[in-house]
Design a protein around this nucleic acid. Sequence first.
DNA 1: TTGTTTTTTTACCATTTGGTAAATCCACGA
DNA 2: TCGTGGATTTACCAAATGGTAAAAAAACAA
Lengths: 208, 208
Amino acid sequence: MPESTAKKPSRIQQRNRRVILDAALEVFSKHGYRGATLDQIAAEAGLSKPNILYYFNGKEDIHVTLLSQLMETWLDPLVELDPDGDPRREILDYVERKLTMSRELPRESRLFANEILQGAPRIEPELHRHLKPLFDEKCAVIAGWVSEGKLPPLDPQHLIFSIWATTQHYADFEAQAQVLLGPETDPRPRAQAHLQAMFGALLDLPAQ
Amino acid sequence: MPESTAKKPSRIQQRNRRVILDAALEVFSKHGYRGATLDQIAAEAGLSKPNILYYFNGKEDIHVTLLSQLMETWLDPLVELDPDGDPRREILDYVERKLTMSRELPRESRLFANEILQGAPRIEPELHRHLKPLFDEKCAVIAGWVSEGKLPPLDPQHLIFSIWATTQHYADFEAQAQVLLGPETDPRPRAQAHLQAMFGALLDLPAQ
DNA sequence: TTGTTTTTTTACCATTTGGTAAATCCACGA
DNA sequence: TCGTGGATTTACCAAATGGTAAAAAAACAA
């Protein structure tokens, strides 16, 4: 049995844990935590249900492992925001990276959205441990740019919220966008132009 | 039995249907469709489960009824956007109304968010019937303002998406905001200032 | 090969959940 | 007061679901 007092995980263990987590991502992101079933995950992974429970201690264990493991990837675009770069460029590039991520990792976006919507019952600790420090750090960076006069006076916290909201919207509310725009084309190219214009206008505001 | 070939619903029927729908809003918005149980709804409503099924044909019936009934309220702020008003004022007022709504009707916001996240399986028809025509109509209004030179060139569809995303964010992702800002204060006053500045900047852009 | 450990399957189980049948209760008009 | 139809409860049920025990199979070290 794979124990917490672990030695090295075997090749089979590594592969199967990866397969299970990928299947779980597919299922959890589509149905939410309570809507997802171990049978669905098992089917998606091509394994039997008891076999899945051989690798994880239960449904919640899979979910928490998945979220924790994806947290880093998820925060990566924000990590890259460089305090020494050009403020306007840095923020607009961040918007672009987040929008790209919503196209390339929509399942991850919906997974997080689902969890937060339910009140973040299972990853609140992770949010405090990873998201909060990074958020505070980057808010301070932006606040610094503002006080140096490199940016117009703006609210760093709510600026970041707006970036998250507008970019993740295209993954989380894809079903709505497909009704309104048609299912054929990816709205993101035009979204990119719009968001660059919008955040660009905000960042170009005259200083106070 | 209350039939679809209905006469007039009795006073008791009216009251209990309202009580049930309010309980269902509470439970569905908190746990999503599949995460909510009839027992929870029954407990919240102060009725027995069979009694609830006396008023509705099943779980899905409650959910669909709830969504359909709230659709009008939900779209109301956009309906109010006046083609004959001042473009800039109309749009900024719409932002404010949506933000107010996210404070006063957060459960409704999360209910819709949950449904859309799962791919809108149960209200897609309603979206086509009510949301889409209104969306198209108001996009045309904004596009008209742009072509009249009353607004800078902007993308009406993605402008509306941005307004939805940024305002509903404060209801849908409240758990995250509470981790990042602290649970004490309502972030919306500062959000209001930020959003007015952001959309104001976009709308004030020089014409092409 | 043989013995041992890891992996997988088979056969279950208890609980939860959406839903139903039928009996009972109750409001109210004649 | 009594009867009638609407409202509510009691007692269920079948299916789904998270999870377990133990045997079987596969992998691997000697």
